[in-house]
Design a binder for these strands. Structure first.
Lengths: 165, 165
DNA sequence: CCCCGTCCCATGATATCCCATGAGAACCCA
DNA sequence: TGGGTTCTCATGGGATATCATGGGACGGGG
């Protein structure tokens, strides 16, 4: 499945077009619908979410799971699949940002693409900066480090495999 | 997995290129993506972190762990995967330091590579010296020693295996 | 008939590739 | 052990390809 990394800031031209970062395009190229990205408004931020066909397939399958509450399923179906817009890349690797989505995220002149592994987000650049600043405060305040997180996760994994035995 | 040791200081040329120390390259050669290093800004220092594909895979897996809370996950996805830049080695074993990362670490003329086992860091040389001096002070003040650390760790391991039984 | 969206081409900036060079380290042979 | 030779490695510069971005042309739908 496609992996999206790094942050890129690209311009939105007067036609509403914006280049998908070349790195993202390379990831998309491996998906089952290389020329299409799916966009929807983020549930948690004033930003857009993007993904490829394969990710949506997985999400779609998850919805079949009996472990989900009815209202969780309802929410996803309404706010993700209900808002999803498939967008085609043009010959130069650009998309036209749908007006409704651009408005939702407050995007006008520029758009920040930020990779989040299996998906990516599109932000109005200043909004993204503000969001990151807020997060960084938390990192400092809680004194979080990478190795800590890995240790925590692997400790949990070990405990679970221990229980299972 | 690759192991990075020792410290090297290399020059950054006017194109922003810098040689990866040959020793590090040999370690990278064993990873599943020998020609690629992943760089990101350190969470805790004005320095860059670097690792190989395999390390990132482990980190990525950790993110799937149910032991992490939502905001920890959000943080990692934003500050690690969102900032992660995959960089290709050229034929001579150099990389181009992305401008944003060089700025973050204050690197201009020279870069210090310091091995940290599974990852390495890249510092502006003077900043690294200052950082090391500060650390050394702590060692003296807290009277830390190697044998102490090893003893402490093995005591902990014994306790944990005791619990499990 | 006009407007909007799509396609195609042009352009400058940037990154990538390829070759050259010199210093230093390792090696080998006497 | 000393001297010379060979290799590796860091570093530099020029040529080439890629990418983001802008504008015009074309065509379908209202």
């Amino acid at each position: 499945m496609a992996v999206f990394l790094s942050t890129y800031v690209n311009k939105v031209d007067r036609k509403g077009r914006v280049s998908i970062p070349a790195q993202f395009r390379q990831s998309l190229a491996k998906s089952s619908a290389p020329g299409t990205v799916y966009l929807w408004p983020s549930l948690n931020h004033q930003a857009l979410e993007g993904a490829d066909q394969d990710y949506l397939d997985v999400l779609s399958e998850s919805l079949e799971s009996p472990d989900l509450d009815a209202d969780e399923r309802e929410m996803i179906e309404t706010f993700i699949f209900g808002k999803l817009i498939p967008v085609q890349l043009d010959g130069e690797g650009r998309i036209v940002l749908p007006q409704s989505l651009a408005d939702f995220a407050g995007i006008t002149e520029e758009a920040s693409f930020i990779g989040r592994r299996k998906t990516f987000q599109i932000w109005e650049p200043k909004a993204l900066n503000a969001h990151e600043a807020a997060l960084r405060d938390q990192v400092v305040r809680k004194d979080i480090s990478l190795s800590q997180i890995i240790a925590k996760a692997s400790r949990g994994a070990a405990a679970r495999s221990g229980e299972g035995a």
